[in-house]
Design a protein around this nucleic acid. Structure first.
Lengths: 236, 236
DNA sequence: CGGACGTTTGAGGAACATCAAAGCCTGTGG
DNA sequence: CCACAGGCTTTGATGTTCCTCAAACGTCCG
């Protein structure tokens, strides 16, 4: 793992205060005064696609706020297969389980070129004792975890393979905020949906044939309402 | 919904302080002084099998600590199918998402005769502002949610139907703390594992034939190590 | 006792996994 | 700049698993 240190996001001055995604992120509710309680620098790290941020069972001393890109949380099964259990996007917190003095539960791997802020656990714990502003945000972030888990379980692992792929595309568009986004590899989509990459490929081919999806390089553009309609027709 | 009020678990005296599952539950870290901050009574409710504790999208004003029995969290899909996304056992918190001023995310239904404590949201919020002891426990409970979600996604929705059934049986034994436990209905097991009740039935029949599972009335007794072995053999 | 509901068992068929081979991009080094 | 290697994607043929539909059986409750 050769993470690149981009810069020191907070250095005693006001890097964090001015962070462009701070409102959504862990420190979103902190006041100017709260920031004065910080005494360790916060590093900003760059990851290229495929790089690992941390491994499951690693002793954890940091959590990471995602600033850009996308991080997958991966679980490996005894037989070597793997399964993606969550996707983290800007504002999300990777390694949140470390706040409980537990080792990381999954592997965190960048799916695209990504940037994260590395926040020391002790920093978070100290801050949490000295100001009540953090606990609320933490609860919101945990809630997000539950929400995602529910979507995953309720929509992405149920029904015919076609429905799963379509629901994933809609989910990706939702989280990206637009109908154009970086498409995960076929294998990754399979690991999200619990189907094989071949089935993913066949379904995507069919959707392209119907003009509901266009792909170009790493990007996909989807016809959102068309896909929603497609779901309803197949369901009945 | 006709929940039965069993009694007032906390009445200004020390019902909660002496609660036999308090250590694991929401108030586990509170001190005697913290309890003095409570000013609303906490009700203990009884549910019979099949009764609903709350519905998804209900405006939430309570969270519930499970005292006995088992509660399932259920999501309904547009086509009327349903999916169980989590099982709650004694010590777990139902409706935890309400702490974020959100409506409930799923339906909560008792699978067996169960008992829960009804805790007012405002109570939790007030307590959270006045003592730091709650936040830690909350984090631990959220962590539990994530943990369960990972197990669900990583083990119960992947692989052949037989493996899923066996993993569920092992999971139920783990959470029960012994190899004898109340077996969910075939339909519920199917809704957990994303397979049909017929497939569940066939698999269970086969496991019984092999002497790895015995059922009696609502109870099941499993050969834990035998099932673990069974998993390894099938895997390869 | 009879009805409703859950479980069991069977037969048939569809959907998906598996295996295999060919095609296509990407990046690398000559 | 082009050629080539590697990985990822696509497409096909085959087989198995599991879903679907259906009927019989068992059990719990009125």
């Amino acid at each position: 793992m050769k993470l690149i240190k981009i810069n020191q996001a907070w250095n005693g001055e006001d890097g964090c205060v001015n962070c462009n995604i701070r409102k959504q992120a862990l420190f979103g509710d902190l006041t100017r005064q709260d920031f004065d309680l910080l005494h360790l620098p916060i590093l900003e790290l760059g990851l290229s696609a495929g790089e690992t941020l941390y491994h499951a069972d690693d002793a954890a001393s940091y959590v990471y706020t995602v600033r850009s890109g996308m991080i997958k949380l991966v679980n490996f099964l005894p037989d070597g297969e793997y399964r993606i259990v969550r996707l983290l996007r800007p504002g999300d917190l990777a390694g949140i389980e470390a706040l409980n003095a537990r080792p990381y539960l999954n592997h965190a791997v960048a799916m695209q070129k990504s940037e994260v802020c590395q926040i020391s656990l002790t920093e978070v714990e100290l801050l949490n004792e000295q100001t009540p502003h953090l606990c609320k945000k933490l609860t919101a972030l945990w809630q997000q975890v539950q929400n995602d888990a529910d979507v995953w379980l309720g929509q992405l692992t149920v029904g015919a393979s076609g429905q799963r792929v379509v629901r994933l595309l809609l989910y990706l568009a939702d989280t990206a905020g637009k109908s154009e986004f970086v498409l995960p590899s076929g294998e990754d989509m399979g690991a999200i949906l619990a189907i094989t990459k071949e089935t993913v490929s066949r379904t995507m081919a069919e959707l392209k044939r119907q003009g509901l999806v266009q792909t170009e390089s790493p990007l996909a553009r989807i016809n959102y309402q068309g896909l929603e309609q497609w779901l309803k027709c197949v369901d009945q």
